[in-house]
Simulated assay, not measured.
Amino acid sequence: MNMHSIPRSTERRPLSLVVRGRVRSRPVYVDLLDISEGGCKIRGGLGFASIGDRVVMKVGGINAPLGVVAWVEGKEAGVAFEGEMHSAVLDYLCKMQGASDAHEDDDARRRL
């Protein structure tokens, strides 16, 4: 099974955060690439996860629902949450990301 054969029930929102999580009960740091109410896409090192592994993550200081790895392609994996992340939480995370990006852009302009 690959990522293209899994139907999506909700729209994924792009997000770029480094999050701490646990895969196979061991701590990992992964890049969170996108997120929705029902799951997310993460990137780690080769072999960091296998289909069926349970995943626990804290995203922006908020505990994400427990998840299961649904697909793996190279260093990327799709996580299907066992519950749902509330849309207001997703709005907050995306807004927080946007504020962080704007702050970094302002800092870069000041250095020029």
Rank of each mutant, 00 (worst) to 15 (best):
M1R: 05
M1N: 04
N2Q: 10
N2R: 10
M3E: 11
M3L: 06
H4W: 03
S5D: 07
P7M: 01
P7D: 00
P7H: 01
P7N: 02
S9G: 12
T10K: 14
T10D: 15
E11R: 13
E11D: 13
R12E: 12
R12I: 05
R12P: 01
R13K: 15
R13E: 14
R13W: 14
P14F: 15
S16K: 11
L17V: 02
V18G: 02
V19Y: 00
V19I: 10
V19W: 01
V19R: 00
R22W: 12
R22F: 14
R22A: 14
R26C: 12
V30I: 14
L32S: 05
L33R: 10
L33F: 02
L33M: 07
L33N: 05
D34W: 07
I35Q: 02
I35F: 04
S36P: 03
S36L: 09
S36W: 06
E37I: 12
G38Y: 05
G38F: 08
C40D: 03
C40S: 07
K41N: 11
K41V: 13
R43A: 08
G44H: 15
G45R: 15
L46E: 08
L46I: 10
L46P: 00
G47V: 01
A49F: 03
A49S: 11
A49T: 09
S50L: 05
I51Q: 02
D53T: 04
R54L: 07
R54S: 15
V55M: 08
K58F: 02
V59D: 04
V59S: 00
V59C: 00
V59E: 04
G61S: 02
N63E: 05
P65Y: 00
P65K: 00
P65I: 00
L66H: 02
V69M: 04
A70F: 05
A70Y: 01
A70L: 10
V72F: 09
V72I: 09
G74C: 01
G74S: 05
K75S: 10
K75T: 08
A77I: 11
A77H: 10
G78P: 09
G78M: 09
V79A: 01
V79S: 03
V79M: 02
F81I: 00
F81S: 00
E82D: 10
E82N: 04
E82K: 11
G83F: 12
E84P: 02
E84S: 11
E84I: 12
M85E: 06
M85S: 01
H86S: 03
H86L: 07
H86Y: 08
H86W: 04
S87K: 10
A88V: 12
A88N: 08
V89F: 06
L90Y: 12
D91E: 09
D91V: 06
D91T: 05
L93V: 11
C94E: 11
C94F: 07
K95M: 15
M96D: 13
Q97D: 15
G98M: 13
A99G: 15
S100W: 11
D101Y: 10
D101M: 09
H103C: 13
E104N: 12
D105Q: 12
D105H: 08
D105G: 03
D106A: 14
D107C: 08
D107V: 08
A108D: 14
R109P: 03
R109M: 05
R109H: 07
R110N: 04
R111F: 06
R111W: 04
R111P: 02
R111I: 07
